Simulated assay, not measured.
Amino acid sequence: MTDLPQTRGRLTPDRPLNDLTWLRVGGPADWLFQPADPEDLAQFLAALDPSVAVFPMGVGSNLIVRDGGIRAVVIRMGRGFNAITVEGTRVTAGVAALDAHVAKKAAEAGVDLTFLRTIPGAIGGAVRMNAGCYGSYVADHFVQATAITRAGEMVTLTAEDLNFRYRQTDLPEGWVIIEAVFEGAKGDPQELAGRMEAQLKKRDETQPTKDRTAGSTFRNPAGFSSTGQADDSHELKAWKVIDDAGMRGATLGGAQMSPMHSNFLVNTGGATAADLEGLGEEVRKKVFQHSGIELHWEIMRVGEPG
């Protein structure tokens, strides 16, 4: 797999991915492609042998790359893909813009996308996973997205195209989202800033934000995220069924289910991807034995075992 198309971006062969994921694990990609801009990406995909797999990667906040790495061209968008613009109540964000930055820039312009403030990662992953917090989801604010197909064509995607569900969307294999447009309610910038400060404080008090994690490990069995409301039911929360199965603080190698929040998988230092995935599978098994509930991964696992 040596003959790859010419590009203005950066192409690196056999690039280890461990330093590009929040959990700091993962073997090498056959190639890492960092496109210069959307045109560069479109031309590259159009010229790339159709038999070569591609894997779009964001900031790696919600990802376990297995120890054997990925047999594909991993596409990682950076500076050419992180612009944020606000017009009226519409916010357009490049796929590499951090969720937190989008929330802050929108708030400064008096647009309420505050739910994005505490979601780890970048906009591409948020759209792909229909990220949500405090009862708000990407789907609730989504206007449209622009993507480049595996054949290098630029297309517009509607909410119908993506078919938003709890932590899932439909995006054809090899298509790469490059930007998304959101609609938010009008709000007072100071009030929005205050609300985000309160959200951050609550998050830091209840989640292991100083540890190496990838956010929530498993989807909530109830099929919706935490609403943050006073009447929020806890019975069908992932952390609750993990606790009930006695797996809070459980360890395997360098992996641990956080003692602070048992739905957070932590690399305590020196964990392999196999440790992390293995512990997650053990948790799923124990929860199923205890309650008959089947937990589904929220963290994406990709690549080959070591």
Rank of each mutant, 00 (worst) to 15 (best):
H234Y: 08
G215I: 05
T206A: 06
T217G: 00
S226D: 13
K186W: 11
P189C: 11
L200F: 11
G194D: 13
D211S: 06
P208A: 03
E205L: 08
L200Y: 08
P221T: 10
S233K: 15
D232F: 13
T213R: 01
G223T: 01
R195N: 10
T206V: 03
P189S: 10
S216Y: 07
L192I: 03
G187V: 05
D204E: 14
S225D: 14
K202Y: 11
G228F: 12
L192D: 05
A193R: 14
D232C: 06
A230G: 01
A222M: 03
T227G: 12
R212N: 10
G187C: 07
L192Y: 08
R212Q: 10
T217H: 01
D231T: 14
M196A: 02
A193G: 04
S233I: 09
S225R: 11
L192R: 04
T217I: 06
S233D: 14
A185P: 09
E197I: 01
Q190K: 02
P208G: 04
G223L: 02
Q207F: 04
D231Q: 06
R219G: 00
T227R: 10
S225Q: 05
A193V: 04
T209D: 00
D231R: 09
S226E: 07
D211L: 01
R203Q: 05
T213M: 03
E191G: 00
Q190L: 07
T213H: 05
R203G: 02
T227W: 07
A222H: 07
L200C: 07
A230W: 03
S226Y: 11
G228D: 09
T217Q: 03
P208H: 09
P208T: 02
K210E: 09
E197S: 10
K186S: 15
Q229A: 11
Q199C: 01
K202R: 08
A222K: 13
E197D: 08
Q199A: 07
R195G: 15
G223S: 01
F224D: 00
T213G: 02
D204V: 00
A222Y: 04
Q229W: 07
S225A: 12
L192M: 01
G228S: 09
S226A: 13
R219V: 09
E205S: 02
A230M: 06
D211F: 06
S233H: 12
A230E: 13
P208Y: 05
A193Y: 12
R212L: 15
E191S: 14
D204R: 12
A185R: 15
A214Q: 04
H234T: 12
R212F: 13
K202E: 07
T227F: 10
L192T: 02
R203C: 01
A193F: 11
D211G: 00
S216E: 05
P221I: 11
E197Q: 15
D232H: 06
P221A: 05
Q199W: 13
K186M: 13
R212D: 05
T206K: 12
D204H: 14
N220H: 06
G223D: 05
S225I: 10
N220L: 02
M196P: 02
R212W: 12
R203S: 00
F224S: 07
A198Y: 04
R195E: 15
S226N: 08
A193D: 14
R219K: 15
D188V: 02
D211E: 14
K201H: 12
T206L: 07
R219T: 05
K210L: 03
T227A: 03
R219E: 08
